[in-house]
Design a protein around this nucleic acid. Structure first.
Lengths: 149, 149
DNA sequence: TTAATTGCAAATCGTTTGCTGAAAG
DNA sequence: CTTTCAGCAAACGATTTGCAATTAA
């Protein structure tokens, strides 16, 4: 049902911007909604192609942009040259913990840090609007492997 | 004198990797050392060109890579499609506070946050090796302007 | 002399854009 | 009808790479 609401939110976004729902957009949004975790535009493109081979890559890029603007998706760039997307609808803010060996990503949040960030910003006179935090390290599995190697 | 040591550190790095100091590298490293704040490879390229118009862009890219490996420089990508560099020699870890309007960047650190990050990672079984944190907001100057507008 | 380095231009790669025909309201 | 779309291919912009000529050790 979260899917239903999310989809409707997207349709509403389109309507309120004099933009149309189209078969292609419906397909892409559908694929987006059933994709968990972090993925690139290209990942989604490949997924969509399995169902609708006619869809162009540009359409996926354009639709992902709409998804972000509509609030359904969030995107971030970890500096690897690719933009990653994730669900933002019914999915509160969080940061990322990334394994530098296997690439596994975990979502994390910490109230203390969130609060400190606002204080820190204010101390410099800034009004904080958002932030991005990436923690890099070895995940338990990879650490164990590392010891064996 | 920090400049002297930094330069020597770079030369040592080259020597220990059977790489040579060259006039081009010396020029680029010199320009790098006298550039404060955050800058892109292209920024440095333009600066270097004023002195040595013959230097190629690829050489600047290549030398910046060496500067990072030697520990003189640190680089990060804020997702704007450009890699930014800054001094890392005699310049301890810090995070960034960025004005979303004028782009001004301030360096920040907070012991509480740093400590919490390690704890958070450990709670997930990760061994933290490094992190990146960007706080985005309106700087005091821009906020004031915003009110007037 | 031998390995490392340079500058240039061509190649990459993810992403964006211009364009023309097609479709939505 | 009028505007918004889609698909394609070309354009882009930052960065990398292949290569032949040059230089450092």
């Amino acid at each position: 049902m979260s899917g239903k609401n999310a989809y409707q939110t997207f349709v509403d976004y389109l309507l309120s911007n004099s933009q149309n729902m189209t078969p292609q957009r419906a397909t892409i949004v559908g694929a987006f909604l059933e994709t968990e975790g972090h993925f690139s535009s290209e990942d989604l493109y490949h997924k969509v192609r399995k169902t609708e081979p006619g869809i162009g890559q540009a359409t996926v890029y354009r639709t992902l942009k709409l998804l972000v603007r509509s609030g359904l998706a969030d995107c971030f760039d970890m500096g690897e040259g690719v933009t990653l997307y994730e669900h933002a609808y019914d999915h509160p803010h969080h940061d990322h913990l990334i394994c530098t060996r296997c690439g596994r990503k975990e979502e994390i949040v910490d109230e203390t840090i969130e609060r400190r960030q606002v204080e820190l910003a204010e101390r410099s006179g800034f009004t904080l609007s958002r932030h991005r935090m990436f923690l890099y390290g070895l995940c338990p599995v990879c650490r164990r492997k590392g010891i064996k190697d």
